[in-house]
Structure formats: C-alpha cells, structure tokens
Design a protein around this nucleic acid. Structure first.
Length: 551
RNA sequence: UGGGGUGUGGCCAAGUGGUUAAGGCAGCGGGUUUUGAUCCCGCCAUUCGUAGGUUCGAAUCCUACCACCCCAGCCA
C-alpha cells in the first residue's frame, strides 16, 4: 500500500498537513516500551503507527527503552522487545535508553531546583498521599515546600550521593497542590531506589519518574511527534510545563490515541504475567498469548498483523475489536503466502479396490496461484486416508462429499466412486471401498465428469504422523479484562493436541514457511518440531460457511 | 458532586453546514472454483447518544441532558 491508498486517520492527516504547510520537513517518532514485560498486540498497534508513519513520510523512528524503574525491568525483556520489533518488520533509526540520559536529566533537575521550580520533600509516601487531596478537594502544601533553592540543591545532591534510605524523600515539581488535574499537584520527579539498573548498573540510586524523563528524552532525540495512548492525556500539561521550564533543544508535541482493546483477550502486563506465572499457559510465547512472541509461534505473519493494525484505524474513541477482525487479517495475508498441502486430522481408511499398481507420484504445486513456490511430490495408491467428516452414511441436504452411491474427487488425484463400506459393531465407519476412474486424473481429465465435491486425503503407506496443536480462544468471556478471577474464565478447550497424518512433503523442517492444510486451516511448524516428529500449530482455521450453515 | 476525554450500522471507521452518510470486518444472496477456501458481483444506517434550538439546509453550529472511559503510584 502507498500513502495514497491507506485509509487515513487523524494523526496521518495531521502530519500530511504539517508537511504541506511547510511547518515541518521531517518527522521523527519513537516507540518507547518499558522493558518490564513482553510486547503484545496493543504494542503492535503502536509499533505499526510509529514506525509506519516514519517510513511513510521518509522520517525516522527510534526504539527507546523507557527504563526509569529498575525494580521492574530486565535484560530479558529488552532482548525480547528488540527481537519482536524486528520480527514485526521494522528497523529503528537509533536504539535508545532513557538510562543513557540520566546525567542530562539530573542536570535539568538541578536547573528546576535553582529556578525554584522543584523541591525535596521529606514527607512519607503515606503523608504525600494524604496531602494530595482528592478528586474534588484540593491538596495541602508540604511543610517542605518552601525550602530555598540552595537547601534543595544540597539535599538533592545528598540524594544522589546515597545519603538517604529508599523513600526518605523525593524531588517534586513545585506547581500547585490545588490543581484540578491531579498530575499537576506537585508530581514526583525523582525517587530513591538503591537498586542496580539493567543498563546503568550501580551508577545511580535515584531514578527519574516517567513524567520527568519522557518529554525530555523526546527532546534529546529530536522527536517531532510523541505518540501515546489516551491515559497520558492528563500528563500532557506536565509534559509541556517541563519542556517550557527547561533549556531543551526542542519542544516535541504529544498526541494521544486510544489503546487497542481486543475481544476475549487481556493485554494488561500484570494479567499476562499472571497467566504465565500461574502456569495457565506455557510461557510468554505460548500461541494462545496475545504477545507478539505468542502470535509468531502460533503462525501469524508480521504482514498479517500489520494489515490488522491498518484495518482497525487510529482514533480517540474507546474501541473493542472483534477477534474475527484479527483472524480475517491473518487469513487474508496467509492465503497468498502459505504453502498448501494435505493433512488428515481424523483419518478413516479408504481402499481403492481397482488400483493394483505401486504408488503413483503426483507432482503438485505448493500453491496453485503462485508457481514460484514450486512443487512437491504427492504419492497416491490403493490405500488412502480421508477425513472422517468427509463421508456420511446418511448425508444431510446439501452435503457434497462422499456418500453411498456417490462420487467425489480426491484432490490432485482421481474421481472415485463409492463401492462399499465396513462398519464396526457400533455402526462406526471402519473402511470405505471405492473405485477410481482412470480417465479423471487431475490435469489430464478426459472424462468430462463433474462431481459435487473435492476432498483432501493422504496416501496411507507414505503418510507420516505429526502432532497438531489446535488453538482456540483462551477465555470463554468476551471481556476477561473486566474479570478479576482470570482462572475462572479460562477456556478449558483452548488447546487440543492430537495426531494427524501428513503427506511426506510436510515431514520436512521448513521453519520459516506458512502452511495451509487444504480445507482445514493455516498452520506453522512449532519450534518443538524435528524431522520425523513434526509439530504443527494451527494459526487459524479456514472460513467455513458449510459448518456455519449446519449449526 | 473536580479535571480530562469519547459517543456514526453487530465490530471498526470516513465525514468538520449543501448530491441518495465513504470504506473495511462480519453477515446475507448470487457467480466462478479440482479447497463448502480464495476470487468476483450484489445487498446490508431515511439516519449520526438523547431532547430542544439556529438555518432555505445540520452527523457537522448552539443549549441542555444522558452514557461510557481516564486521573488521587516515590508505575509507565
């Protein structure tokens, strides 16, 4: 897609306008995750927005780790985030860490102190909370609020020197304790944490807060558009207050958009963490997780996720996207990308009674519309397996698969006519007997015969056995985010593991390929796979209007 | 009962005073099809949170009301 045919949204429109008006010549954005967890689908929206916009307008986008709280952050998350952003298909201009700005931020804190715009408060956290007031009542000034700049500077230096315990005091902006916006009631700028930092090591025992770090970091990097979610809107006056008070190189502008809410999905880091730590899923990359790592393992493609992010738009409205919107985007992308092959998940024996020869090796394309994907060998013979659901003794109206007295095409093979069926004592189909029509070989059919259906199959002798993992939504409720007891709304059927018979070509490691099991769904080889013992994850099923009608 | 936001079809989303309110997803109907997939065609809001008002004319302007979301971390 080019800029012209992408659906527009208010941020894209605004940038286009600014460029047109000559107000800016280049845009610089940043994606600023805190490395305290894995990236999820909500972050994907932000990544696509920030990197996408920069690419579209010929600008730059930085990946910035907003690492101001060493208590929660770790190198594991930094590495995972780096991997995920690249996998999603984006390349940053610079990789940055707020920690690398700590010295400059400290200098700026000193500036504020000398200007009389910040003070060291020795009230306890509880006291500060009590004195902050409420939503409807103003707060009370701290008894330490009127210290002189000299006194504050001396204290702040002592904070840095490690002369105070954690929590003994904090640097606060001196704004107003009666501001209706709670964020302006003398917000904390620096706090004491005798904790070593994943990047800065033991250099610091005081760390800036988000509010004191974010805008100035944006300014240091020359960010033109600081995009963030709506919950930061109330912080914007503070963001601007700091940039105005400080001798920063430029004044970035913050623009907010609404965060992504996905049906039947949780995206709070706390809740995702609970799922992992309580063992409800197998890890951050469990294919049922809405994490980028999880979606990657499940078999979603980066382009499919990008397509989804483009389709959902960017606004300031609260929104909850239906799961089918995500699945639709993934299918739309995978349809053109996947290698298409045959696998039978619930096999039943079929004997082709008039086939006397050895196996016939059919040469069939991986994708009928994409010859460049090449071909593979598909064996056919006397004994094949078809899916149990593709035969009905007593078919409902409109059923066009194999039935007694009927005929069906074995895809890429021949048309076969029903001959007989063996049932076991319970009336369950045991073996189906058919005759193949030699004049109907795919690609050289001279019979002119038409049959109602074409089904998939594998050759019994050469087929391999694989494990398939069939995933379904993790939660039974559409709004798990609103339920405190997550365990109570877990879907017990979110993962079904079973074996399947696969054609030989599917028994080869192709870790980067996406597959479609014809008539079944899109699959990806799990990293647990080994040749001879493949594991296929179902990313998403095919659209199935027949199943829909019959229910 | 403070401040900041948001309300357009089942879900998203254009639209910012003047043709019959874009488009996507989902749904429905039909065509093509060696995947009941894909692809193609068609249908799907007399109405824009509600009630008033301004205007020749309103989803767009004004007023009032209603609903929902965010903010009282030394989290981000």
């Amino acid at each position: 897609m080019t800029v012209a045919d992408k659906p527009t949204h208010f941020i894209r429109a605004k940038i286009a306008d600014q460029i047109k008006q000559g107000q800016i010549t280049e845009i610089v954005t940043r994606f600023p995750p805190e490395p305290n967890g894995y990236l999820h689908i909500g972050h994907a929206k932000s990544i696509c927005l920030n990197f996408g916009l920069a690419a579209e307008f010929g600008g730059r986008c930085n990946l910035r780790f907003d690492d101001t709280n060493p208590e929660k952050e770790s190198q594991e998350y930094i590495d995972a985030i780096t991997t995920d952003v690249q996998w999603l298909g984006f390349q940053w201009d610079q990789i940055c860490h707020t920690a690398d700005y700590f010295e400059q931020l400290f200098e700026w804190a000193l500036c504020l102190i000398r200007q009389g715009d910040a003070y060291v408060d020795e009230q306890s956290a509880d006291m500060m909370r009590a004195n902050r007031g409420t939503l409807t009542e103003p707060g009370v000034d701290s008894p330490y609020r009127d210290r002189t700049p000299e006194e504050n500077e001396a204290l702040f230096l002592k904070m840095r020197a490690g002369e105070f315990e954690d929590g003994a005091c904090v640097l606060r902006a001196k704004i107003s304790m009666s501001a209706p916006n709670m964020n302006l009631r003398d917000p904390a700028l620096y706090r004491i944490k005798h904790v070593s930092h994943p990047r800065a090591g033991d250099q610091w025992c005081i760390y800036p807060t988000y509010d004191f770090a974010h805008g100035q970091s944006d300014a240091i990097e020359g960010i033109t558009h600081s995009l963030c979610t709506l919950e930061f809107e109330d912080h914007r006056p503070l963001y601007e207050w700091l940039l105005k008070k400080l001798p920063v190189p430029c004044r970035p502008k913050q623009t907010e958009f609404s965060r992504l809410e996905l049906e039947a999905t949780v995206t709070s880091k706390r809740k995702l963490n609970t799922l992992v730590s309580e063992g409800h899923v197998e890890g951050w990359d469990d294919p049922r997780m809405p994490t980028i790592a999880g979606m990657r393992r499940r078999g979603y493609s980066p382009e499919g996720i990008q397509l989804f992010c483009e389709r959902i738009g960017v606004t300031r409205k609260p929104n909850t996207i239906e799961l089918q919107t995500l699945e639709g985007a993934i299918r739309d992308d995978l349809e053109g990308r996947a290698h298409k092959a045959m696998a039978v998940l619930d096999p039943v024996d079929v004997i082709v009674t008039n086939w006397e020869d050895d196996a016939l090796e059919l040469d069939v394309p991986w994708h009928p519309k994409r010859p460049e994907l090449g071909t593979r060998v598909l064996p056919f013979g006397r004994h094949v397996l078809i899916d149990r659901s593709d035969f009905e003794l007593d078919p409902p109206d409109g059923f066009h698969r194999l039935v007694p007295g009927g005929a069906v095409r074995l895809k890429y093979g021949f048309i076969v006519d029903f001959e007989d069926v063996d049932l076991d004592a319970d009336g369950r189909v045991q073996t189906i007997y058919v005759r193949y029509d030699p004049t109907t070989r795919s690609g050289q059919d001279q019979s002119g015969r038409k049959v109602k259906g074409t089904i998939h199959w594998v050759h019994a002798e050469t087929a391999k056995t694989a494990t398939v993992r069939l995933y379904d939504r993790l939660f039974t409720v559409s709004d798990p985010g609103r339920h405190e007891d997550l365990a109570a709304c877990l879907n017990p059927e979110s993962l079904k593991t079973q074996s399947a018979r696969i054609e030989p070509a599917l028994d080869v490691l192709m870790p980067d390929a996406y597959f479609q099991f014809e008539r079944v769904g899109f699959f990806k080889q799990d990293p647990d796979s080994t040749e001879g013992q493949m594991v296929y994850n179902r990313a998403v099923g095919l659209r199935d209007t027949w199943a829909k009608k019959s229910t």
